[in-house]
Write a protein that binds this DNA or RNA. Structure first.
Length: 829
DNA sequence: ACCGCCGGGTGCC
DNA sequence: ACCGCCGGGTGCC
């Protein structure tokens, strides 16, 4: 039963941000609201997703109570908004006190004391986790209703129920069914309201909304006047190319943006967050900046320097440009990256068409203790000229880096695309508002990059900036790095690496990186910091579970080896784009570690060598050892890669053939309509791209579409007016028998079906009453392949089927023989 | 009346 | 709070 009630991770996050990840209140003081760099975006708390407690938590039931004392607090909520319940054991009036906070961390009120008396010990003992939502009455002046859901381990259910009973409370059982309509909200009386819907209604955006928001974000980019250029500060010696000047103008304009952050809008006298339903009187702080991404790291670097100079050095230009000392930056989320691919994200990207990845680059960037143990320069301060030569001496191959085809730097990007991020930002706002007035205006830019790029930055500054310009900067790296926020915040620039960032975050003492208010944060090579947890925001759980599976039990070495190899095979063969987390390229000579992570052999060996004697897995930080790496047996590897490439090759050549046929057809008669049929919707999706590129108007029909969409699609296709679609991408199994696609007179079958009847049905759909033209069917069959043999089978089957209506009946023996022939044909005997 | 009832004062924990 | 609760005023019908 309980499988239905998956806890929304937002809850976990709300708990985390409000109580501290480990129940430790000092965790609250992490970098605050928008203005600060949110390190959590790079390194979410480990226990956010993969917590054992969450995995086996079940919903015990729900309870209705009240929030009281509203008039004493400023925190407000909206109907259906979630709230956090926080124990307040030191409350002088009641040791059982439980605060109710909104997502922003502002107190709304308290749980009424009789209920608090019952809840306090449950919360303290962690027998259950209690989640709250204010279903309605959010505008009440004195008290408001509170809907609570109790989650915990099955074995604790009874204790919780008994305890509540002792205090006179009884949980409503979880609803029997989960309604999927929004109407089944709080009002529906029977069998208890649908628990999850109001919550989701409150915090989750529909795909449409999300798209709209994204469109808005990217409209801003597009609207930006591309012709606007900006001259760099005088200190920049390297002349900027036009697109770099555009980028500079854009970055400066982004830094001075006056717009509301994404997902916020003004409603009368309140500012309203469309994701959390949270609203507040105070205007949320501006989000400045954006993501500047291109294929050419060098150019981006120069630009960042230019902005740096605009902000920090040349007063005649910088004056008034950098007004606000508050910036934040986040790693582009996965969805950002996806969006980036969808939209021409950067107006300044280099025309270089293909992304090229190099293995070498990331071998070097396997940021590690190597740097520390070698005592490479930890502190580099003063004239850049000196720094430059020092960097060169290190021989870190900066020239190679300059050829680096990939570069991404993020300037204060508003990538608040997920609700958890919104919550997080919200929760820290209070802290921020407290501090803002007390702190001095920040002046320091933090640059975070992979280790291999560190020297590049130093080098770049030296090359492009006049040597008589003094930029104070500090390389925050190495065992002796000075963790003094005062020192750091006096610099113009602090350079550090992602690993240091991660490392510091985990340490007990407050990391200066996390407490300093930065002028801006630049994430360099941001794509390199792929958080293993963030990849496939469910897959994480699977992976964790699998890894445990691999490590579980007392296997013999041979058993372990077999398991690991099997796991590696699984990873390699499943992967649409399985990449090595070190080089980010496809896996070459894949090896698996004992912690069940797969890397390229050269990549991981380099890491191990760099980090010896205590090398750790780049993904999970478990100890790894060169002698423990398992290679994929060559015969396995061959079969896997062969399968993959032949598949790809087949697909692409079929698409080529199809495109030729379609273009040919269009030339001969542009009015002819075609069905392109496949049983694989993913394959249909692949076809969309070249269709668009060749200017075809097309429509699509597959099983995933709503009835309404299907009707629209069909009507659209059947329409014969000029400009109507000439092609329909049709999923073989979509639609009922009655489907009429008689506008089509050509059918392209992209994959042979085992059952020719399905294809015939497809043919029938266009060969209907009203069909005036001859219907021509084209099948794409790969020569000398299984497909070709399947074609033979189909013909045999058709003959058999025809025979069934003929004179003699097919008996069991004949059927059997037919089957055998079928298989023989297939395997070419 | 060691009650009930009324109506004013009052209001988180 | 257009409530509940408290405690003072009050007391047949």
């Amino acid at each position: 039963m309980s499988w239905m009630f998956k806890r929304d991770p937002v809850w976990k996050y709300l708990q985390t941000v409000q109580y501290g990840a480990h129940g430790n209140f000092s965790r609250l003081s992490y970098p605050t609201f928008f203005p600060r760099f949110e390190f959590q975006d790079v390194i979410p708390p480990d226990d956010f997703v993969t917590n054992d407690e969450d995995l086996d938590s079940v919903l015990f039931g729900t309870l209705r109570g009240h929030v009281v004392g509203l008039r004493y607090y400023t925190g407000v909520v909206n109907n259906n908004e979630m709230v956090a319940l926080q124990r307040e054991p030191n409350n002088p009036y009641d040791k059982n006190a439980i605060k109710v906070n909104n997502v922003n961390g502002n107190q709304v009120g308290h749980i009424k004391k009789d209920l608090a008396a019952a809840l306090a010990s449950i919360m303290d003992s962690k027998l259950a986790q209690v989640e709250g939502v204010v279903p309605f009455g959010a505008n009440n002046a004195f008290t408001m209703p509170l809907h609570m859901a109790f989650w915990g381990k099955e074995e604790n259910r009874k204790a919780v129920l008994d305890h509540l009973k002792k205090h006179g409370f009884k949980l409503l059982p979880p609803p029997k069914t989960l309604g999927f309509s929004l109407e089944s909200g709080w009002g529906s009386g029977r069998a208890g309201p649908s628990y999850s819907m109001p919550v989701h209604a409150a915090v989750q955006m529909t795909t449409e909304q999300l798209k709209t928001e994204f469109d808005k974000l990217f409209e801003d980019l597009k609207e930006d006047d591309k012709t606007q250029e900006m001259e760099p500060a005088e200190a920049v010696e390297t002349p900027l190319l036009p697109h770099q000047k555009q980028a500079l103008a854009w970055m400066v304009s982004r830094e001075n943006s006056k717009e509301l952050p994404p997902f916020w809008e003004q409603r009368s006298d309140l500012y309203y967050n469309t994701i959390t339903n949270f609203s507040e009187k105070d205007r949320p702080e501006n989000v400045h900046g954006g993501i500047l991404a291109d294929d050419m790291g060098l150019e981006c670097n120069v630009n960042s320097e230019s902005v740096e100079l605009e902000g920090n050095i040349t007063s005649e230009k910088a004056d008034g440009l950098i007004k606000e000392g508050s910036r934040c930056s986040t790693e582009p989320s996965i969805s950002d990256v996806q969006e980036k691919n969808k939209y021409p994200m950067s107006e300044f990207s280099s025309p270089r068409p293909k992304r090229r990845k190099t293995v070498d680059k990331y071998i070097e960037s396997s940021d590690s203790e190597e740097f520390e143990t070698n005592e490479l320069p930890q502190k580099t301060k003063g004239k850049l000229k000196n720094v430059k030569s020092e960097a060169k001496n290190r021989g870190k191959g900066s020239s190679k880096l300059k050829e680096d085809p990939e570069f991404m730097c993020a300037l204060t990007s508003p990538t608040t695309t997920t609700k958890k991020k919104m919550l997080k930002k919200g929760a820290s706002a209070v802290e921020d508002s407290k501090k803002t007035d007390l702190e001095e205006k920040p002046r320091t830019t933090l640059i975070i990059c992979p280790l291999s790029v560190l020297s590049n930055w130093i080098d770049q500054f030296g090359q492009h900036i006049k040597s008589d310009v003094h930029l104070n900067f500090y390389v925050y790296y190495g065992p002796d790095r000075i963790r003094d926020p005062t020192l750091l915040s006096k610099q113009d620039i602090v350079l550090t690496t992602y690993n240091i960032l991660t490392h510091d975050y985990g340490t007990k003492g407050d990391s200066p990186l996390h407490s300093i208010r930065w002028l801006r944060v630049i994430l360099d090579e941001g794509h390199a910091i792929r958080n293993p947890n963030a990849q496939q925001t469910k897959a994480v759980l699977d992976l964790e579970a699998e890894r445990r599976w691999v490590l579980t039990g007392s296997d013999t070495p041979e058993e372990l080896r077999k398991k690991l190899v099997r796991k590696m095979k699984l990873i390699l063969s499943s992967g649409s784009d399985e990449e090595c987390a070190i080089c980010l390229d496809s896996l070459t000579v894949p090896v698996i570690t004992h912690c069940a992570h797969v890397f390229c052999k050269p990549c991981i060996c380099q890491v191990i060598q760099n980090e010896q004697p205590n090398a750790k897995c780049p993904l999970c930080r478990n100890n790894i050892d060169g002698s423990n790496l398992l290679e994929c047996p060559p015969e396995e590897l061959a079969s896997i890669t062969e399968k993959k490439t032949s598949m790809e090759w087949t697909s692409s050549s079929k698409i080529n053939a199809l495109m030729h046929a379609l273009i040919d057809l269009r030339t001969k008669n542009p009015n002819i309509k075609s069905l392109v049929v496949s049983q694989f919707t993913t394959f249909l999706s692949l076809i969309e791209t070249p269709l668009k590129a060749s200017g075809f108007v097309f429509t699509r029909l597959d099983g995933s579409m709503s009835q309404k969409k299907r009707v629209e699609s069909i009507q659209c296709f059947q329409n014969t007016e000029a400009g109507s679609p000439t092609i329909m991408l049709l999923s073989l199994k979509a639609g009922g028998v009655g489907l009429n696609l008689s506008a089509a007179s050509r059918v392209f079958l992209m994959d042979p079906a085992w059952n020719p009847a399905a294809e015939d049905q497809c043919f029938d759909r266009c060969h209907r009453l009203g069909q005036k033209q001859e219907v021509i069917i084209t099948k794409f069959i790969v020569k000398d392949s299984v497909e070709e043999n399947m074609l033979k089978i189909q013909n045999t089957k058709r003959e058999l089927a025809a025979g069934a209506f003929g004179t003699k009946k097919t008996n069991a023996n004949e059927m059997k023989q037919a089957k055998i022939d079928e298989i023989k044909t297939l395997i070419d005997l």
